[in-house]
Design a protein around this nucleic acid. Structure first.
Length: 292
DNA sequence: CACCCGTGGAA
DNA sequence: TTTCCAAGGGT
C-alpha cells in the first residue's frame, strides 16, 4: 500500500511562491532546451549557466542544428563552463537524437539513458521536466533534503541505488504534482537547505524536519572523499591546453603546448588524456586542434 | 566502487 | 590563503 507524500503539499506550495525565475522553467522552453540546461548544470552553478544557455540555444535551436556542426564548435562555444567533455557528449547526444529519434529529444527514460553523457539524474530530469512523466529525480540537493528532513541526518550517505526508491516514496502519485515536487525539493536544497549554512528559519519544512527535531546532530557517517587540490593538478594542465586549443584558429604547435607547463611528464599525461577523450586531435608534427 | 574530469565564487 | 562545493557521468 502507498500513502501520499507527507511533505509534498507544503513544499509544492512554497515552490509556487518562491521558485526562482530560471530560463528553463519557462513552460515553452522545450525538451531540447531542458536537455541542454541539464548538461550545463552538471557541476556548473546556475548563475554561470544562464548566460551560456541563452547564447547556445540562440545558435543551435534544435538538436539537428548542433548535430550538423563539427564538435569543435560545441567545445568552443562551451567556453569555460568546465568539464569540456560535456560539450563533446552533448554534441554526440544531438547526433544520436537525430539518428535514432528523428531529431526529437526522447521522453522515455531508457532512451534518454542511452544517449552519450546522460545518466540517472539527467534522464529522469528531462523525462519529468520536459514531458511531465512521473519519475523520481535524484540529485545532490534532493539527497541532502531527504537526509535532513526525513532521515534526520546532517548529510546524505554516499550515493546509492536506494536513493531512487527513497525519493519515489516521497513523490506524489499525480503526474503534475510529482513534476512540481521534483523541482521543489531540488530548489529547497539549492536555496534553503544548502550544504553550508542552511537557512532553517526560513524553511517550509521546519515544523516536520527530522534533523531539526533531533537537535541538528552533526554528521557521523563515513567521511566524504575530499576533492583533490586543483592547483598543480592534471586537471589544471588539461584546462590550460584546452584554453589554448579553443582560442587558436589554426593548429597549436607542440612548442606552444610545451610552453604552457614545465613538468614534461605531467604535460604529456594531460595531452594524451585530452587526445584519448577526443578533445584534442593531431600530432607533434602538424600540431593539435579541437575535433572537426 | 573509487577515482577522474574544469572552473570560479564564497566562506 | 585554503577549503568547499556547484541540477553528474564515465570508466
Amino acid at each position: 500500500m502507498s500513502r501520499e507524500s507527507p511533505i509534498a503539499p507544503v513544499l509544492n506550495r512554497w515552490f509556487a511562491e518562491n521558485a526562482r525565475d530560471l530560463p528553463w522553467r519557462d513552460p515553452d522552453y522545450g525538451a531540447w532546451g531542458i536537455l541542454v540546461s541539464e548538461f550545463m548544470l552538471q557541476q556548473t552553478p546556475v548563475v554561470r549557466v544562464i548566460p551560456a544557455i541563452t547564447a547556445w540555444l540562440d545558435r543551435w535551436p534544435t538538436p539537428a542544428d548542433l548535430a550538423r556542426v563539427p564538435p569543435a564548435e560545441a567545445v568552443r562555444a562551451w567556453d569555460r563552463l568546465g568539464y569540456p567533455r560535456r560539450a563533446l557528449w552533448l554534441h554526440q547526444a544531438a547526433v544520436e537524437i537525430v539518428e535514432r529519434h528523428g531529431g526529437v529529444v526522447p521522453s522515455d527514460v531508457d532512451d534518454l539513458l542511452a544517449l552519450q553523457g546522460v545518466g540517472d539524474y539527467t534522464a529522469r530530469a528531462v523525462s519529468a521536466f520536459a514531458y511531465g512523466h512521473r519519475h523520481p529525480v535524484v540529485d545532490t540537493n534532493t539527497r541532502r533534503v531527504i537526509a535532513r528532513a526525513v532521515a534526520g541526518q546532517a548529510e546524505p550517505a554516499p550515493p546509492a541505488k536506494r536513493d531512487l526508491a527513497d525519493m519515489d516514496e516521497l513523490l506524489p502519485t499525480d503526474d503534475a504534482e510529482a513534476r512540481v515536487f521534483n523541482a521543489a525539493i531540488m530548489e529547497l536544497g539549492a536555496v534553503v537547505c544548502t550544504a553550508r549554512a542552511p537557512r532553517c528559519d526560513d524553511c517550509p519544512l521546519r515544523e516536520s524536519c527530522a534533523w531539526r527535531a533531533a537537535g541538528y546532530p552533526a554528521y557521523d557517517g563515513p567521511r566524504k572523499a575530499v576533492q583533490k587540490k586543483f592547483e598543480g593538478s592534471d586537471r589544471q594542465v588539461r584546462g590550460l591546453i584546452m584554453r589554448e586549443l579553443r582560442a587558436a584558429h589554426g593548429p597549436v604547435t607542440i612548442t606552444e603546448i610545451t610552453s604552457l607547463w614545465a613538468d614534461d611528464a605531467q604535460r604529456e599525461r594531460a595531452l594524451c588524456g585530452l587526445i584519448a577523450d577526443g578533445l584534442a586531435v593531431g600530432d607533434r608534427e602538424s600540431g593539435f586542434t579541437l575535433p572537426s
